[in-house]
């Protein structure tokens, strides 16, 4: 990333390049500071929350306390089931919808597409009461399905994939058709592989959104067996009894670790996919 910042176009000589590198590091440090603080407090006992001492004894006690404060193993499982369900459904629904919008002509297409776009303007929270009523009438309150139901289709996903599919050259489509491929086969063999970076980027955005979502899951679920990680983390917000930053930090680190690791693993593809999307 630093290399990208210090690109040869911008830096004409060594001095300005060095300056840019220093600047980049400064910005990165500023950005990372809250995270570094979380790591610091998570691994140290309470007295080092505000006292910095490089040789302060490192402890894992905060993690142990946090882990035992709430059934996190169950919450991890619930979150995992939730995001798997949402992501799988979003990928299928959005792909099919985007394909139809991008490559087929049918009556009312423009109006339908506008209706999809209108959804982008509405905050999901504004529909909470309606969604709850729907979930209740289906008898789904306090289930993982209810948590995912409002998100099974995504206007953003449809829009993003439609734009990507539109950029696929018609020649590729025609070539596949001449080879005798049907519409579904064309979708799976031509469009989906070409949109892979977009799928990865969208998948990460979607997963991190649902990993962090709090209000709707909190409202629609009641029991430990359905609640996700974010609700479990809430147990630590205790303004009446004083806040134990160490334990909160440990819990936050613990629950966001899979996301962080996922991002580190996919970082190259993630950044590249956005850059490529930009070039197009």
């Amino acid at each position: 990333m630093i290399q990208a910042n210090a690109s040869p176009i911008a830096g004409t000589n060594g001095a300005s390049r060095a300056l840019e590198t220093v600047g980049a590091y400064m910005l990165a440090l500023l950005w990372a500071l809250p995270f570094l603080y979380v790591v610091w407090t998570a691994f140290h006992s309470a007295e080092y929350e505000v006292n910095f001492n490089l040789f302060a004894p490192i402890t894992l006690e905060n993690f142990v306390t946090a882990w035992h404060s709430a059934p996190f193993a169950r919450y991890f499982l619930n979150t995992f089931m939730l995001i798997t369900m949402v992501l799988a459904s979003q990928l299928v629904v959005c792909t099919l919808a985007a394909y139809a919008f991008a490559k087929y002509d049918f009556p009312g297409k423009t109006i339908l597409f506008f209706l999809v776009l209108v959804q982008l303007m509405i905050m999901p929270e504004a529909l909470m009461v309606e969604n709850y009523a729907t979930a209740a009438s289906l008898g789904l309150v306090d289930t993982i399905v209810a948590m995912g139901l409002p998100y099974l289709a995504s206007a953003f996903g449809i829009f993003l994939l439609r734009q990507t599919f539109m950029t696929v050259p018609k020649e590729l489509d025609d070539a596949a058709r001449i080879e005798g491929a049907g519409p579904l086969k064309i979708l799976l063999k031509v469009y989906v592989p070409l949109a892979k970076p977009v799928y990865i980027a969208y998948g990460l955005v979607s997963v991190s959104y649902h990993w962090n979502n709090l209000l709707w899951p909190l409202v629609v679920t009641n029991s430990v067996t359905t609640r996700p990680l974010t609700v479990g983390l809430q147990v630590f917000s205790s303004p009446d009894q004083g806040v134990q930053w160490g334990i909160i930090s440990a819990a936050a680190l613990m629950t966001s670790a899979p996301l962080l690791i996922g991002f580190l693993l996919f970082q190259r593809q993630f950044v590249q996919s956005f850059m490529r999307a930009g070039i197009k």
Partner: peptide, 18 residues
Amino acid sequence: GTNPETLSKVLTASRAGK
């Protein structure tokens, strides 16, 4: 959840009749 969240949860559930 917190106090404001409890209020939203109660109002939401009440309006949905549950």
